[in-house]
Amino acid sequence: MTSCHIAEEHIQKVAIFGGTHGNELTGVFLVKHWLENGAEIQRTGLEVKPFITNPRAVKKCTRYIDCDLNRIFDLENLGKKMSEDLPYEVRRAQEINHLFGPKDSEDSYDIIFDLHNTTSNMGCTLILEDSRNNFLIQMFHYIKTSLAPLPCYVYLIEHPSLKYATTRSIAKYPVGIEVGPQPQGVLRADILDQMRKMIKHALDFIHHFNEGKEFPPCAIEVYKIIEKVDYPRDENGEIAAIIHPNLQDQDWKPLHPGDPMFLTLDGKTIPLGGDCTVYPVFVNEAAYYEKKEAFAKTTKLTLNAKSIRCCLH
């Protein structure tokens, strides 16, 4: 018999989150649709729960009410004593943790798909938090293969000092899905179709896995975050240069030392320094102006996964 890495157990509980950011409308629209008619997301033997994560922000069509829901799922915020004085999103995070967690427990949901849009030209993107997770690498390989020839990129946010504390991190297997470009507060049919297909293929993978299909060893190309880059700023902290036209919409493309990065209003080009080629992502993302992030630098690498098969009882 072929030796293989056996994944822990079959997958039982899956959640699909929309509206973690209330103005990213593809996930909101799909989740609302699936709450009314969820036939397309159901798979035999699998509990799939669509869920609106930040209903107040969705109602106002804004990213958040008090603070970013997708950055506060750490033990400090989840452990705060519940009171009306807490920011709305912290209270909501505790409610979500109660419903789908608790985080880092045996009772937490197996998989959470968190649906997002970006204003950046990132196409279909899967966000991975753990480079050693054979199950998710296999799932992402399946999704990428199923979507081809449509490109699907994998963004690895594993980093020693950049801690995200994402909404989906309460699950055993957290999956971020990011599709763009799409303006905030807008629905685009092409973007919706791409996100819908990503979810379909992900659920198909889980179904095949649960039925005992063995997935042979595989490898995927990923883009691992190195650092986030702020806009150049003046002495008052105001933005002093904008994304250069040569960099705009060039997510995932190589940016070499000396290539144009920013452009000042008086026409001066600010190039990339250093001696390493990087791959920019979230270029000129609207939501990241407040976070002082013009783009993120990534490096390209390959992740390998062992063969996996479900432990059938």
Rank of each mutant, 00 (worst) to 15 (best):
L162P: 08
I127C: 06
F282M: 13
L312E: 14
G258F: 06
A287K: 11
C218P: 01
E158C: 04
G101I: 05
R43M: 04
V222N: 01
K224V: 04
F135D: 01
W34D: 01
A241F: 00
P217A: 10
D234W: 05
N54P: 12
P245C: 03
D114Q: 04
A171D: 01
A171R: 05
Y231L: 06
Q42M: 12
E89R: 04
A39P: 07
S105Q: 13
D110R: 03
G180Q: 01
Y288N: 13
H141P: 00
N117G: 03
S169G: 09
P183C: 11
S161M: 14
I11Y: 05
C61F: 12
L35Q: 15
D259T: 05
F282S: 14
F135Y: 06
L303F: 04
D266S: 14
C4Q: 14
K300W: 03
V281Y: 03
T119F: 02
E293A: 10
G180H: 02
L147P: 00
P102W: 08
K144G: 05
P183N: 08
N121G: 04
D259Y: 05
Y231A: 02
D66Q: 14
P260N: 05
K172E: 04
T166S: 10
A240L: 11
N117W: 03
D249C: 04
T20Q: 03
D130H: 05
K292C: 08
L265D: 04
E214N: 07
N23S: 09
G79P: 12
G180L: 01
N133C: 15
D107N: 09
W34Y: 11
V48Y: 01
L156Q: 05
C310L: 11
K80Y: 14
M195D: 00
H33C: 09
W252K: 03
R233H: 08
E285I: 03
T269G: 06
T62M: 08
C218M: 04
L150E: 14
V14H: 00
C310Y: 14
E8P: 12
I225K: 07
E178I: 12
G27C: 03
D266M: 06
R56G: 09
H208Y: 11
R309C: 15
L265T: 08
G22I: 08
I16G: 02
E47T: 15
V278N: 03
K59C: 08
L35R: 14
A15M: 00
D104W: 13
K163R: 12
R309G: 07
T62V: 09
T125H: 08
H21G: 06
I72F: 10
G185V: 01
P271Y: 06
L86Y: 11
I191P: 00
E129A: 15
D110H: 06
A202E: 00
H207S: 09
Y173D: 03
M139P: 00
D107R: 09
N284S: 10
K49G: 03
T269E: 06
A202L: 02
K291R: 14
N37I: 05
L147Y: 04
V179C: 07
N77Y: 12
T20R: 02
Y279C: 05
L46R: 00
L46Y: 10
H10L: 08
K268N: 13
G273E: 08
H98R: 13
N54W: 04
C152M: 07
L78W: 14
E158D: 09
L263P: 00
Q12V: 11
I52G: 00
L203F: 06
G258K: 08
S161N: 15
F73K: 09
I65R: 05
G18Q: 01
R92H: 07
K49Y: 14
E293R: 09
H208G: 07
Q12W: 07
S169H: 08
F17C: 11
E36S: 12
T53C: 06
K253E: 12
I143K: 01
N37E: 10
R71G: 13
R71A: 08
Q94M: 08
P260T: 04
F282Y: 12
R168A: 09
F282K: 13
E40K: 03
R233W: 04
K297W: 05
L265Y: 09
K291W: 06
D68Q: 05
G274M: 04
E227G: 10
A287V: 09
I191Y: 03
E76N: 15
N210A: 06
V186S: 07
L263V: 13
P232W: 02
A39V: 09
T298L: 04
D266K: 08
I206T: 07
L30R: 02
R309P: 05
I111C: 13
L192G: 01
D114F: 05
Y153K: 09
C218I: 08
Q184W: 10
K213W: 09
H159D: 13
H208F: 09
H201V: 11
F17I: 09
A15I: 02
H33W: 12
A287H: 15
Q250F: 05
T119Q: 04
L203V: 04
T62Y: 09
D107S: 13
M139R: 00
S307C: 15
L126D: 00
E290H: 11
K300T: 07
M261S: 06
D251M: 00
P260G: 09
E178Q: 15
E36V: 09
K200F: 15
G274W: 03
E24L: 02
I16F: 05
M261E: 04
R233M: 07
L192M: 15
H256T: 15
L86R: 13
N236Y: 13
I143W: 01
N54F: 04
E285H: 13
P160N: 09
S120V: 02
L126V: 04
I11D: 02
P260Q: 04
Y164F: 12
I112V: 14
E235K: 12
